[in-house]
Design a protein around this nucleic acid. Sequence first.
DNA 1: GTCATCTGACAGGAACGGCTGTCAGTTTGT
DNA 2: ACAAACTGACAGCCGTTCCTGTCAGATGAC
Lengths: 206, 206
Amino acid sequence: MSTPVRSYGGKTAQERAQDRRERLVDATIALLAEHGEAGTTMTAICARAGLTERYFYESFAHREDALLAALDHVSAQIAAAAQGVIEQTPGSPEERVHAVMASFVDLVSRDPALGLVAVVHSSATPSLRARRHELIGTFADLVAHEAAVLYGEDAWPADRARLQGLVYIAGFAELVASWLTGEVTLTAEQLTSTASDLFVSLSRRP
Amino acid sequence: MSTPVRSYGGKTAQERAQDRRERLVDATIALLAEHGEAGTTMTAICARAGLTERYFYESFAHREDALLAALDHVSAQIAAAAQGVIEQTPGSPEERVHAVMASFVDLVSRDPALGLVAVVHSSATPSLRARRHELIGTFADLVAHEAAVLYGEDAWPADRARLQGLVYIAGFAELVASWLTGEVTLTAEQLTSTASDLFVSLSRRP
DNA sequence: GTCATCTGACAGGAACGGCTGTCAGTTTGT
DNA sequence: ACAAACTGACAGCCGTTCCTGTCAGATGAC
């Protein structure tokens, strides 16, 4: 530990630490999705990642840190995907909203664990809830901003738009949670369309 | 314990057990609001209720049962208040929606612990999340039904209305959570109006 | 080859909460 | 008054988890 730095297995010390951290984060996400927060113990994370406990504390100060890192990882993926679609999709406001929703639904369809962590297990501990709350705020701002761009003159004032975004994102998260757990039976396309319609209903002025 | 039944302190055995259960539920709600789920240990619940551990297991099989009972208690209060307003308030759809929202905001203003349990701490454990999910579904159905009554011919089809209700209730819960924790600064009246407006936006057909 | 670095396995301390059992003391019915 | 029901205080077991420390063995730089 004391002042390391030496290559090992063809990788620098920094690369190795980075790799271990990634493995730990991946293991945390998988365990959260499969066994929930209570089953995501430090020991289980290490076992799943194929690393020993010592390396856990190389990357994280507490177990909570690993949970937060897992949530940050999935939300960054979601935000990046959404941002990419927003920037690259032309068309009418409705078409663009639909494209964003479709990309998100596609993302969680291909990797349900990502969705489960983002919308189901993100409320499991106080610090996760706090982070989740921040993230909802961030996405709400994104939604509010995009609604303003999409609807231009007809948009709601900024403070109102943010509250709409908050309600919409939180509501959408619950809908996705119901969908992922099978309590709402919809095809991916139906989910996308419903979510898009609701966004339009909420955002468009009377 | 074995086949009891005898009056004590002027109350029957059943009454005493009932009283103890109420004290335990009240203590659980207060502790959840003040110290969160992690701080709501069985020992702490008993201490707060002024009862010993043995009586805890008279009313509940596990600690989780007490948490569930606390959530059920607050949601029953909320549902009863809403139902009362729905049945007794005349006027236009918008006025009636506003009245329901006002009664809810008033309820959580006077008893913030109730609101905190309902919208913040209801996601703390897997079984609480499951119950919360059921409750959201119940309130969503209520909302969908009322929207159908309010808007009559112009209402959405039932399956769509339920999804709207789901999104609205979950979004509203998040909004109230933000309000209770001070992250959204609105007066009670502003919160009521915003929530009513959003309901109308979402429910009214274009 | 040799030594320092790095890695994996694992034992075990410390703290905590769920849950059970005991026991002395109080209240009630007869 | 006396026995049975009831209550409150409290000790303590059991299982779990976080986290630290030790040690043998593998790998790389020189």
